[in-house]
């Protein structure tokens, strides 16, 4: 799927750019987009290194396992294919908890470790597992309780009530998660 989308975006972009006379902007974009990607990774790199270091401490000290067991009753319903006591559950729980507080960049390393652990029990290494997809659906549908970036931007724009969108956003997030997880569940059942 990514294979198709990736190619389609480039083909449509360039062809439409040629038709609409917008090709100069695209020419520039091709040259500078590598730099944009590099900037993104440079921004992420120190966060990844520090948090993965801290998480190793949490893992070896057994803290992660404790967190995993605490949330096991809920997680086992969402991720039936991950066996109890697997480290992936601890990372998933931590990722969701940190995400909920609106600390997206700190949540990413936890998510990457969760995927790593799920990959270890994956039979076909080039193919996504059910558990991975459920985890990513949960991640893309937000699970953010406090959208910190949005609130700070509202504050900067002089909003009288910058935090008034918290409750509506939580409700909308909830709808997105339920919608995504329901479709995920239906597809998984049909595949069996």
């Amino acid at each position: 799927m990514i294979n198709i989308i990736w190619g389609v975006m480039i083909v449509i972009g360039i062809i439409y750019g040629l038709i609409s006379g917008n090709i100069e902007a695209i020419n520039n974009e091709i040259i500078v987009s590598g730099k944009k990607g590099l900037d993104m990774i440079l921004e992420m790199l120190p966060i990844l290194v520090i948090w993965m270091g801290l998480m190793k401490i949490a893992e070896e000290s057994g803290l992660l396992k404790k967190i995993a067991n605490l949330f096991y009753p809920v997680l086992s319903k969402l991720f039936p294919s991950i066996p109890k006591g697997n480290k992936a559950l601890g990372y998933i729980a931590s990722n969701i908890a940190v995400n909920m507080m609106g600390l997206g960049s700190a949540a990413t390393p936890f998510g990457l470790k969760a995927m790593d652990e799920m990959q270890k029990i994956n039979q076909k290494k080039d193919t996504a597992t059910d558990a991975m997809i459920t985890f990513l659906v949960l991640n893309t549908s937000g699970v953010t309780l406090i959208p910190t970036t949005v609130i700070s931007l509202r504050m900067l724009s002089g909003s009288a009530h910058p935090t008034e969108i918290i409750l509506p956003a939580i409700l909308a997030t909830f709808c997105a998660s339920v919608g995504g997880l329901s479709l995920d569940y239906l597809i998984r059942r049909r595949h069996k």
């Binding site: 972009g13 902007a25 695209i26 091709i30």
Partner: peptide, 9 residues
């Protein structure tokens, strides 16, 4: 790379 070409068009 792909997303930015798409957006810029």
């Amino acid at each position: 790379f792909a997303i930015n070409i798409f957006l810029k068009s």
